[in-house]
């Protein structure tokens, strides 16, 4: 059977076409908003204006194309609600990514560094950093990412520890939300939400059902759902056609391979 020994280069070309070509077209696909995305949206919606929200960029550069639309939508929502963002990173690569993203969205929305958002940068050893911020954020981050004393900024002088933070959102491509739940959630009763790569989604269902995570937004699909709720079309929507055709191709390949296998057995 020729089909069973299909040259892998043909599969590679098919994947390239299925994922790449749809990116050239802007075909808006209708997106149904899932329960988990709604939970995160309403958690942010219910926070009073002016409250502190902590965004932790627990990501590496490799997952940026998938995570960026998610993070962008979340940041936009926080700024729309006039929440004061505290940005930080518990992975070194997340430091520059988070800062760029925050500044980019803040500039678009006319938000000011120091009164609407600050960026604390990276701290190594995430367990002690998470626990330490429960005692005092200043102890863990005496200076911000730009080496300034963030306590001097007018919007952040009263920030002490998790007691002052309404919600922590871990934007992650790995297991960091687990540590946020185990250390900030269990010990300090901190509310936590997660924005995750699609591959991590199944790992966090137990935490959302138990209420340890208030909700999660996952993958490009989650980003598209969040964008739908905010009423704009961004990177999530742009990627939906590409992701749909990519999934469809894999499904088709698996079916073809199994049909070929069955025919061979007969």
């Amino acid at each position: 059977m020729r089909l069973l020994s299909l040259d892998r280069r043909i599969i590679y070309i098919l994947v390239l076409l299925a994922v790449g070509v749809p990116l050239l077209f802007r075909v808006p696909l209708p997106v149904k908003v899932g329960v988990e995305t709604r939970k995160v949206h309403s958690a942010i919606d219910n926070i009073p204006h002016g409250s502190y929200v902590m965004l932790s960029f627990d990501i590496e550069a490799s997952s940026l194309p998938e995570v960026k639309p998610l993070a962008e939508a979340t940041v936009r929502h926080c700024f729309q609600r006039d929440l004061r963002i505290i940005g930080l990173a518990l992975f070194s690569e997340g430091a520059a990514i988070g800062y760029n993203l925050l500044v980019q969205v803040a500039d678009e929305m006319g938000k000011v560094y120091g009164s609407d958002y600050i960026y604390l940068g990276f701290r190594p050893q995430y367990v002690s950093a998470i626990l330490g911020m429960g005692e005092s954020i200043e102890d863990v981050f005496p200076l911000d990412y730009l080496n300034n004393d963030w306590r001097e900024y007018p919007g952040y002088a009263s920030l002490g520890n998790y007691d002052d933070v309404a919600l922590v959102i871990s934007i992650a491509d790995g297991s960091l939300p687990t540590y946020w739940v185990e250390y900030a959630g269990s010990r300090y009763n901190q509310k936590i939400a997660a924005c995750l790569t699609a591959a991590m989604t199944t790992s966090y269902y137990p935490y959302t059902v138990s209420g340890q995570l208030v909700g999660m937004v996952s993958g490009l699909k989650g980003a598209a759902e969040y964008e739908t709720m905010l009423g704009y079309s961004g990177g999530g929507h742009r990627g939906m056609l590409s992701q749909s055709s990519g999934h469809a191709l894999i499904i088709l390949l698996v079916i073809v391979a199994n049909v070929a296998e069955l025919r061979k057995r007969k």
Binding site: V15, L249, V254, V256, A257
Partner: peptide, 27 residues
């Protein structure tokens, strides 16, 4: 430099996953 390089390497997974699914996902 760093972001495009790492994203590129990670994106290669899509090709390997498709090829592996074709060869390995049999009933």
């Amino acid at each position: 430099v760093q972001v495009p390089m790492q994203s590129t390497v990670f994106a290669l997974l899509a090709f390997f996953v498709a090829s592996a699914a074709y060869r390995g996902f049999r009933m």
